[in-house]
Design a binder for these strands. Structure first.
Lengths: 150, 150
DNA sequence: CTTGCAAATTGGAATCATTCCAACTCATTC
DNA sequence: GAATGAGTTGGAATGATTCCAATTTGCAAG
C-alpha cells in the first residue's frame, strides 16, 4: 500500500499541474505517490499495479493519462525515448544521434574519443558497459539536407 | 531501385556473416544494400519498402530477420534502444541511465555538469538541444539493491 | 443548494511494431 | 535424387499504446 504524499510533494504536484492549467485529482496524487515511493523506473503496467492497491477502480488509461500529464509539466521523465519504430544505421563509428523534433530526422553527431573516455569514467566501480547511447533531441536549422542521406 | 553492393561491401557482408556462421543470401544482400544506399536511419518499414523495389516478393518477416542478423554480427546498429515498455522516473536531476542486461534493472548514474557541458559543445552550429539522453548498457555486480529502489 | 460546463476518468476497441510459427524453398551433402 | 538444415514466407498472435465515446467529477454561477 502506498503512503500518502508528504505536504511538500503534494505542493510540488499542485504547483506543477497548476502551471499548465491542470488540477490535482485523487488519481494523479496516487500515481505521483507511486512514482516517488519506489524509484525503480517502473513501466506503466508497474505503476498501474501499484496504484491499484490504493485505488482498485483506477484504470490503465488513467495511468497513461497521468504519466503523460506529468511528463508534460516536467514532473517526471520518460526513460526510454518515446516509443517509435526502431531505426537502423550502418555507421559503426562511435557517434551520437540528434533527433530533430520538427522534422523527425535523425542526424549522426561525431563523438570525440575524449568524451567517450570521460563518460566511461563516471560509471561507479563494478559497472561494465559495452554500449553507450547518446541522443540529443531538439531543433536544428537544417541548412542542407545532409547527414540524413549520404 | 537499389544499386548492387560494391565488391568491398559484399566482402564485408560475407565475412561478418561467416564469422557467426551464416550465409549471404539474395535477401540479405538487398537489405544490406538498402541500408548503405541511404543513411537516413530508416525504420524496418522503410527498409521493407525500399528493398521491395528490387525484390517484390520480399517479406516483412525477412526484413526483420535480416536486420536482427546484421545487428547480431555487428554490421549495423539499432538506433532506438530496443523497444520495450516506456519507463518513468521522478529523478529530475541530470543523470544517465545504466541498464543491467543481466537483471534488466535500470540504475541512475550521476552526471557531472562538465560532461553535460562538453557534450553540448560537440553539437554543430545550428543544432539546439533541450534534452540529452545517455544510456549505458552492460553488466554490474549489483552489490546491494540500491539505486533501483530508494 | 441546483444547474451546467469543462476537465478527468473509464473500459473497450483499434492501432501499430514486433514476434512467433508452421509450411515452404533452396542449396548442399551423401 | 533424397535428406538435411538454414533461410524465407505469410499470417496469426502479442503487447504497448492510443483512441474514443460515455460517464463522472469538481467547481462556478445563478
Amino acid at each position: 500500500m502506498i503512503q500518502k504524499l508528504t505536504e511538500h510533494d503534494r505542493e510540488n504536484l499542485q504547483e506543477s499541474l497548476a502551471t499548465s492549467g491542470q488540477k490535482v485529482t485523487a488519481q494523479r496524487e496516487i500515481v505521483f505517490a507511486v512514482l516517488l515511493a519506489k524509484r525503480d523506473h517502473p513501466t506503466v503496467e508497474d505503476v498501474f499495479q501499484r496504484a491499484r492497491e490504493s485505488m482498485p477502480g483506477l484504470s490503465l488509461a488513467t495511468v497513461y493519462n497521468c504519466l503523460e500529464t506529468f511528463v508534460g509539466c516536467g514532473l517526471v521523465r520518460q526513460v526510454n525515448h518515446e516509443r517509435e519504430s526502431t531505426r537502423y544505421c550502418p555507421n559503426l563509428a562511435p557517434h551520437a544521434h540528434f533527433r530533430d523534433e520538427a522534422t523527425g530526422h535523425v542526424h549522426d553527431i561525431e563523438l570525440p574519443p575524449e568524451i567517450i573516455q570521460s563518460l566511461r569514467s563516471i560509471l561507479p566501480a563494478g559497472f561494465n558497459s559495452e554500449t553507450i547511447e547518446i541522443s540529443f533531441r531538439g531543433r536544428s536549422q537544417e541548412t542542407a539536407p545532409r547527414s540524413t542521406s549520404n
